[in-house]
Amino acid sequence: MTSNKRTLIRYGREVQRLRHEAGLTQTALANRTQSSKSQISDVERGKGAPSASLRKSLDEYIGFGRLERLWEDLTGDGRPAWLDEIATAIQEADAVYEYQALAFPSYLQTEGYARAVIRAAAPWLSREELDTHTKERVARAQNMADTPRPMLWLALDATLLGRRYGGSETTQEQLAYIAELAKQERITVQVVPADHPRHPGNAGAFRVLMMRDTPDVAYVEDAEQGRVLTSSAAVTRRRMLFAALQGIALDPDESIKAVHEEMGNLENE
């Protein structure tokens, strides 16, 4: 596949780091790899895709296997996702279509809800690590709320509304936040009935990112990690799956009514 800008920047930063670690100047590395200083500079700044021969030489002299593995991870379909890469891609997208069944998307979480979800998923984190992760997530959520793009369309399994991360008060705050974003037309929400006999969301959470200047991508989640899908066939399949979810979901108005009904249930708990 054609390497996108984020891939080139990440690869270039690692080349620069390893060059410094080896104590080499750009000129010295260029001499060893039979390239030029300007080529090395372009690679390190993410300005150009390195040829296969240059990647091989860079890996031989400073990577020792690490640069080739990084390149494969960054450019292969189904590769592991870098969390900051996904966060950046969402900000740069024109539209995001996302299905979730366990928790609201991280970029739409309140502070209390984010802390509870992170703690539940990673109980081994120290208090300091938990604080750091929560702060980063809340900052991304605030940025998302303050900007008009990307367009956000969520398909949520109905069981998600009944989950009580952080307790009733925290959940109430989170649901109210989602309802307010929908009222402001910042997001569109559709709730998928959990008892539908042909529920198309059984493969797990995913999102499709409609990009401005680069090919569209999909991001899928499993129990251990997320994966980025870049092939047009894989992205198209996720678009079709999202359309199938929309087809059985409540309409946006009825979905927000469902959110308010759950808020009412919380008041009685």
Rank of each mutant, 00 (worst) to 15 (best):
M1L: 02
T2P: 02
K5F: 01
I9P: 06
R10Q: 08
Y11N: 00
V15F: 00
L18Q: 01
L18H: 03
E21Y: 05
E21L: 08
L29W: 00
K37N: 10
S38E: 06
V43A: 03
V43M: 04
K47W: 02
S57Y: 01
L58I: 02
R66G: 02
D77Q: 13
D77M: 10
G78Y: 14
G78V: 11
A81Y: 07
L83N: 15
D84H: 15
T88S: 09
A89G: 01
A89M: 04
A93T: 05
A95M: 07
Y97V: 11
Q100K: 13
A101R: 12
Q109C: 03
E111P: 04
G112T: 02
E136Y: 11
E136M: 15
R137Y: 14
R140P: 12
N143P: 07
R149A: 10
T159D: 10
L161D: 04
G162C: 06
R163M: 01
R163K: 08
R164K: 10
G166P: 00
G167V: 06
E169N: 13
T170A: 14
Q172I: 07
Q174R: 04
Y177M: 08
I178F: 12
I178H: 02
I178R: 11
I178Y: 06
E180Y: 07
Q184M: 09
I187A: 15
F206Y: 11
V208F: 13
M210D: 03
D213S: 14
T214A: 05
A223N: 01
V235S: 09
F242E: 09
F242K: 06
I248A: 03
I248C: 00
A249T: 13
A258T: 15
A258V: 12
E262K: 12
G264C: 11
L266G: 15
E267T: 15
E267Q: 11
N268V: 07
N268R: 12
